[in-house]
């Protein structure tokens, strides 16, 4: 799964949804892979308002990528900034989480990621 996906996912446990600690999930023992994907500036601009920037900064640091700026760029700034486009593209669209775990910062539940597919099914006592 692309790193972008991590920005869309919280803990699946209903009682965790209210806690800000349940998002983003924290990668653990992560194995990353990199794909060659064609850069689509239109996609990144479209994504900008949907990305939770603070969560993305956390994820980026946790995966060992350079620190992102504190404030997200505006759509105009992003379009004009080739380096920013390239960096975001590499992080969100080209980097894949292949193996490891995603851990909820609130309840500590670990979701296994195998061959790029995370498993969010819950045992009955958490449903």
């Amino acid at each position: 799964m692309k790193v972008l996906t991590l920005n869309f996912l919280t803990c699946a446990v209903k009682t965790c949804k209210a806690s800000s600690d349940s998002f983003p999930l924290h990668p653990k023992d992560a194995e990353l892979a990199s794909d060659d994907v064609e850069l689509n500036p239109q996609l990144l601009v479209n994504l900008l308002p949907r990305i939770d920037w603070n969560a993305l900064r956390t994820t980026s640091t946790e995966l060992g990528f350079p620190q992102l700026p504190e404030q997200p760029p505006t759509a105009e700034e992003l379009q004009a900034d080739e380096k920013m486009l390239k960096d975001l593209h590499t992080l969100l669209m080209e980097t894949q989480l292949m193996e490891g775990k995603l851990v909820c910062g609130h309840c500590g539940h670990e979701y296994a990621v195998r061959e790029g597919i995370a498993n969010f099914l819950l045992p009955s006592h958490l449903v």
């Binding site: 799964m1 692309k2 972008l4 996906t5 869309f8 669209m93 597919i117 969010f120």
Partner: peptide, 10 residues
């Protein structure tokens, strides 16, 4: 390149 992410969920 356009496969965003797939996961098991309900």
């Amino acid at each position: 390149g356009r496969l965003g992410g797939m996961f098991t969920a309900d």
